[in-house]
Write a protein that binds this DNA or RNA. Structure first.
Length: 256
DNA sequence: TACGGAATCG
DNA sequence: CGATTCCGTA
């Protein structure tokens, strides 16, 4: 059953995936918070992409693919966010390259400034509320609402009725890249048009940094067979993803 | 343009 | 730990 959030996904096949992305507190950790954690590069990228900021970066044709249209500008924005005035694309791209091993990103070879998020296997979940409060030892820190996604302004999470939502585990980037129905049935770079209704999608993902860095496998990110992982192989790369049983989990990625 | 090692930082 | 900085190589 679906949540009241919304009937279902209207058109998952729309080329316009994102509208806005909200990130959990563990992702952001404002500077004033103890043990604060700064925003990470991929958060930032999703944020810009979600806002349809367009100028510096925008989604590409493939699922999760994005194109940096103005590298130096993007670098400038990134530098501003991080307080690194001397940031440039050379440095930023180095950070992106580190994501290769972590399986967060991949380079689309041949296409300039084109990378791709490894959204291969996302767990789809409905928004309203996540039933089981995580009473695990994970995420013991449950500082109040932080959800300060910079993009928050643009989108009512889901139904927008969540004044002081229950302790949701974390997460939810709303609306992310669409799943790929078939291996290569994608293309059709959307002609720009950030004016689509925000899909009532929410991804429940728990990405937890941990300390591992085997980076042993470089077998070209076999996105498959990673049951429940967001960024394939996350378990080993330092990123873990957990899905809460919301009664209507849906796996994206088609087949496994 | 893109890659990745190495040193360093917060 | 996740970058940032710098740089040699392709």
């Amino acid at each position: 059953m679906q949540c009241s959030c919304s009937p279902a996904v209207p058109h998952l096949s729309s080329p316009y995936w994102t509208r806005t992305v909200l990130f959990p507190d563990w992702a952001y950790k404002p500077a004033w918070s103890p043990g604060s954690r700064q925003v990470q590069l991929w958060h930032f990228l999703l944020e810009l992409l979600g806002r349809g900021e367009g100028g510096a970066i925008s989604w590409g044709g493939e699922w999760g693919e994005f194109v940096i249209r103005d590298p130096e500008r993007l670098a400038r924005l990134w530098g501003e966010r991080k307080g690194k005035p001397h940031m440039n694309y050379d440095k930023l791209s180095r950070a992106l390259r580190y994501y290769y091993n972590k399986r967060i990103l991949h380079k689309t070879k041949g296409k300039r400034f084109t990378y791709r998020f490894n959204f291969s296997k996302l767990i789809l979940v409905n928004c309203p509320r996540v039933p089981p409060p995580p009473s695990h030892q994970l995420v013991q820190s449950r500082p109040p609402s932080v959800l300060l996604a910079a993009a928050a302004a643009a989108l009512p999470v889901c139904g927008g009725a969540a004044p002081q939502p229950a302790p949701r585990p974390f997460l939810l980037p709303c609306c992310l890249p669409k799943p790929v129905p078939s291996p290569r049935a994608l293309h059709g770079p959307g002609p720009r048009g950030p004016s689509g209704p925000p899909p009532p999608l929410a991804l429940a993902l728990h990405v937890r940094a941990n300390g591992r860095s085997p980076l042993d496998s470089a077998a070209g990110w076999d996105a498959n067979r990673v049951g429940g992982s967001l960024f394939g192989g996350a378990k080993q790369t330092g990123i873990q993803v957990e899905s809460r049983r919301a009664g209507s989990d849906v796996q994206m990625g088609g087949r496994v």
